[in-house]
Amino acid sequence: MKNQEKIKIGWFSFSCCEDNTIVMTEVMNDHWQEWKKIFDFRHVRVLKSKNIMDEFDIAFIEGAIASPEHETQVTEIRKISKKLVAVGACAVVGLPAGQRNDFTEDQRASIEFLVERFGVLPKVKKVSEVVRVDVEIPGCPMDPKNFLDKVNALVAELQSK
């Protein structure tokens, strides 16, 4: 990648509370001028309306995979992304979004009609159960410094090519 080319960013939220999205927008408070120069925020629904789904240098995946539609979407994102980064606990370990996986029989019975109604997966999955993940940033929410370190390492790697 030539240095002057902007790095194409995708940010996608699946089943979660979007805490990592909020942390990302808070990290942006101190880094927005630098990010504006080096990043092409190509598909980030929290930031923009005209999102483009063609190719990404880095796709960030937040949240667990809870439905067949999620499986299809994250598989498509993987195909068009050089690097795929799972951010936050729900993406990395599948919890707490997937807490229904560990429900008792009584608890399962009480939510059964909703699981059936909305056609979700029988078991909620972490991202790496569905697609290959290049980098994991754990935490509930992710730690801002760890996020920044991982992002900077990916930027350096992509710009060196």
Binding site: F14, S15, A66, S67, H70, P96, A97, Q99, R100, F103, T104, Q107, S110, I111, L114, F118, V120
Partner: peptide
């Protein structure tokens, strides 16, 4: 359209 995560059910216990 957020997928339900059943927080109130998970409170039990």
């Amino acid at each position: 359209g957020e997928n339900k995560r059943f927080f109130t059910e998970a409170m039990k216990g």
